[in-house]
Amino acid sequence: MSELATPRSSDRAALARIALEAALAVGDVVGAEAGPHGAWVTEAGGERLPGVVAVAQADGRYALDLHLIVRPVPLHELAERIRERVVRASERAGLEGALGSIGVSIEDIELLEG
């Protein structure tokens, strides 16, 4: 009987996890939104990653869509910071070749109290 290879997380799942972690590490990102009926969730090896969707592009890379809840800050700059973080994190993981477009959807804005 041949030896079974150890299951390895796919590039898609790994990218989704990295992108979500990188986005949530940005200061003005409060959280991620799983969407209606969990539509914006990526399943990664039995783990649920709410707020990120990774879809294969025609060129073989993976387009990432992040659905985030953020603080009321300038959105352009925030999106740029998120993208930079995601790109850097994917480079560190050696997955920059698999990273396609990065979409950021602001699902809600958490207003500051007082």
Binding site: G103, I106, D108
Partner: peptide
């Protein structure tokens, strides 16, 4: 969604109506 930027490479920044309505109202 309301699209704030839509790049040729497919990257985009968009926001849902509710937070934008809240911002406008505020």
């Amino acid at each position: 969604l309301l699209v704030l930027e839509d790049e040729a490479d497919g990257s985009r920044l968009a926001a849902r109506r509710r937070p934008l309505r809240q911002i406008a109202g505020t």
